[in-house]
């Protein structure tokens, strides 16, 4: 009869010697790289594709979003200001040879925010706070032309397309693998991605300058807003890479460079009409 016994089996044959932390770090690093690359590629692709969507569809999309634009002005002065802004925008749009099916609608908002923004469907919102800081109509025209250029380049739609793709990509990643990533990704997906890239901002500046030149014959005061911003911000420098808007000083430099190339004029900047100034 054969012998029956249970010799001692050495430990660790059935268990991988990999340290769980090492496994974890490798996985996290690998997957986040994959995630970032995929999202980047997808968002670039979506941005390129978004440009080919007809403008009429963009307008329909903007209209279907509901009441997200400022209310129509109620007071006479606000209406007067809005009409003036609309007029100026149309003059600039004409100079920029905007396609006829791309109408610009300017909204005047009494908010104190020092900002102007271009959004979907050819809508531009200008805040009272911004107008108050501007020394002349030329400075306002430069900003309006910049926003019109964004609309012409389809930047709001590109940004929306990118943001949407990123959200979709993150959502689909979160669904993979037993939903284990869901908790980790849930909060990241909420990051606001609807902003323009630096190259979009620079392209908008480059398109705005000739328009201002065409309307006024010179680009004096075009840099006024940025000069003011730099003066106010002299306390701290925001790192160039972190903000999507090019550094104000770089923008001033570019505008000055552009104006230096033009024939020198001594035409004074057109002042803003009296009703545009805060009461």
């Amino acid at each position: 009869m054969a012998d029956y016994e249970n010799p001692l089996i050495p430990e660790g044959i059935n268990v991988s010697p990999t340290h769980p932390l090492k496994d974890f770090i490798l996985l996290v690093a690998g997957i986040s790289t994959l995630l970032i690359v995929t999202v980047l590629v997808l968002s670039l692709l979506a941005g390129q594709l978004a440009r080919h969507i007809p403008f009429a569809n963009e307008q329909a999309l903007a209209a279907s979003l509901g009441r997200w634009l400022p209310q129509p002005p109620e007071s006479a002065i606000a209406r007067q200001r809005q009409d003036y802004l609309q007029n100026l925008a149309e003059r600039l749009a004409g100079a920029m040879q905007l396609p006829p099916n791309m109408p610009i609608t300017v909204h005047y908002s009494p908010g104190q925010t020092v900002n102007a923004m271009a959004t979907l469907g050819g809508h531009i919102v200008v805040f009272e706070g911004l107008i108050a800081t501007l020394p002349s109509e030329n400075a306002l025209a430069m900003i309006l032309a910049h926003e019109i250029a964004h609309i012409r380049h389809r930047d709001p739609l590109v940004a929306l397309g990118r943001g949407f793709t990123v959200m979709l990509a993150l959502a689909s990643f979160a669904g993979v693998g037993d939903g284990a990533l869901q908790q980790g990704l849930g909060s990241i997906g909420m990051l606001p991605i609807l902003s323009f890239s630096r190259s979009q901002e620079e392209a908008a500046d480059a398109a705005a300058l000739p328009a201002v030149l065409a309307v006024y014959g010179h680009v004096g005061d075009a840099a006024a807003f940025f000069e003011k911003v730099t003066q106010q911000r002299s306390g701290f420098d925001s790192p160039t890479l972190l903000s999507t808007h090019p550094d104000s000083e770089q923008r001033i430099a570019r505008i000055r460079e552009f104006s230096a190339r033009q024939a020198p004029t001594d035409v004074a900047p057109t002042p803003l009409p009296a009703f545009m100034k805060a009461p």
């Binding site: 268990v15 991988s16 990999t18 769980p20 496994d23 974890f24 996985l27 996290v28 690998g30 997957i31 990643f173 993979v176 693998g177 037993d178 939903g179 284990a180 990533l181």
Partner: peptide, 18 residues
């Protein structure tokens, strides 16, 4: 921790040593 690592692993496949 192990469940999370295994969840990550299921994205790329391979040995789930956890």
């Amino acid at each position: 921790f192990k469940r999370f690592v295994a969840g990550l692993r299921s994205l790329v496949g391979g040995r789930v040593s956890a």
